[in-house]
Amino acid sequence: MAAPSWACQAARIAWKDLHIEGRSREVVTTMGFMAALVVLVFSFAFISGQEVTVGPDVVAGILWVAVLFSGTVALSRTFDRERESEAIRSLLLSPAPRSAIYAGKLAATALIMFLVELLLTPLLAALFSAAITPHALWLGLLLLLGTIGFSSVGVLFSAALLRARSRDALLGALLFPIVIPVLLAASRATATLLDPTASDLEPALFWTRFLAALDVVFVVVGLWSFEPVVMGE
């Protein structure tokens, strides 16, 4: 029997996660609820009466804080499915390269997160009167890049904590400091794009490029280190 290509193996693992999510809608629901909750809590704090008093930089911060917390929920649940019934062992015993397992998990997690973010952003825009339409595509690209950066580190740490007892508490503690550069770049670029008075988009371009470069670094490190991390050796 011919061994499937690396990309085929990664695609099958991603499809498996997406198929399970399509069937249960568990991650989308919990993640969406968490993200909406974060946005609503900020709206209670910042909106008084009809008046919106926050600027684009604060709205950008709220968006990425919501992504951060809800994304952590998504990561935990995605890896719970691997731990239940020790399914991860069967995956690791298969001929699929461990880097393909990482790529598949990353693709599925990022896609699920991105889907929730696409629903979250209009809610944020409606509550905070944020101008998301002038640079909607660019904003979408930023969300995608930020999500890939966050997930690339998150999948790695979730795999490392697969057998840890307090993995949910540890995941946030380990993940948040590492993804600070991703959040910084993403929120700075988002703030520029959401500012209707901004005539110079150079800062947004700089931070978008920086974010893309971070993604490349994090994904390469993830592909390279997933095997020793998940094997626990």
Binding site: P4, R12, K16, H19, R81, S85, R89, S90, S94, P95
Partner: peptide, 20 residues
Amino acid sequence: GVYGDLSARQNLRLFASLYG
């Protein structure tokens, strides 16, 4: 070592595809 959210056939199909 199987996925609880997949059916028996889907589980076997997944692992069959990983083994080519």
